[in-house]
């Protein structure tokens, strides 16, 4: 309504310039914002980024989804990610805990993690939350928040890779892979993940056992044992086991 009245009154006087129009409708500021964000985040698909940005720019009410949007703007390996985490934290800090009490508590934090991980199996998310989750009443500091977000995003990449690994093990594309084969691969993975960065020899060994040469030896041994094709493993089971190996490297929040 206010805009309309202004428009009318503008008509009475001088015709509105382009700049004035952009400023009045706030489009100029908005486009400037999104251009800045696109330059900072360098998304792989800028057009999709734009579409998603404007899609959600209307919905500013839900803090968690706003934070999610900010966090998803760039990949976690980019330096900008850290700034985005800060921004998300600043958004969430407006969360109302009680009367005149604002901040991030475990409820919001866990909620955000669940929202971010909506594409990965719930069993996996539960396992993650057991490590990085907070109690509902706990106040979440930025350090913890940052660590949690980072772990969450790395885990997502990890799950994606594990899915790929499974699908390449699943030769018939039947959604089920040979259990013996899966076990052998997971065992190798577990061994590599158990290596500590302080022990260079273990690292070299793990590197070898995951290399084509080492993997070949192991798989060859499995093949020769000839007990293949007796039982199968589904993708979920496989991913869950792979994630378990991953989460052993994540320290529990104390």
């Amino acid at each position: 309504m206010a805009d309309k009245r202004k428009l009318n009154s503008g008509d009475d006087r001088l015709p509105e310039s382009d700049r004035q129009f952009l400023e009045r409708t706030n489009v100029g500021q908005m486009v400037r914002d999104v251009l800045g964000k696109i330059a900072a985040n360098r998304p792989a698909d800028p057009v999709l980024f734009l579409a998603e940005y404007f899609d959600s720019v209307e919905d500013q009410s839900n803090l968690v989804s706003r934070a999610e949007q900010v966090l998803c703007m760039t990949h976690h390996s980019r330096p900008m990610f850290e700034c985005n985490v800060r921004m998300a934290y600043d958004i969430l800090i407006k969360h109302k805990v009680a009367k005149k009490l604002y901040g991030i508590n475990g409820t919001v934090y866990n909620n955000l993690i669940r929202v971010l991980c909506r594409n990965i199996p719930p069993a996996v998310v539960n396992k993650l939350l057991r490590k990085v989750g907070c109690q509902d009443f706990e106040a979440v500091s930025f350090d913890v928040f940052k660590w949690g977000m980072f772990t969450c995003f790395v885990l997502q990449d990890y799950v994606q890779l594990a899915e790929q690994l499974f699908s390449s093990l699943d030769m018939q594309k039947s959604g089920k892979a040979d259990k013996v084969l899966c076990d052998a691969v997971l065992e190798q993975l577990r061994m590599a993940l158990a290596s500590n960065r302080a022990d260079p020899r273990r690292i070299v060994e793990s590197g070898y056992s995951l290399g084509p040469e080492g993997l070949h030896t192991v798989l060859d041994r499995v093949l020769k044992r000839g007990s293949r094709g007796q039982s199968c493993e589904t993708s979920e089971q496989f991913i869950l086991e792979a994630v378990e190996a991953f989460l052993t490297k994540v320290k529990k929040l104390q």
Binding site: L165, Q188, L189, F246
Partner: peptide
Amino acid sequence: LSSLMQELWALS
């Protein structure tokens, strides 16, 4: 397989 597993390891 090897390259996928190495990536998994790197992520962890």
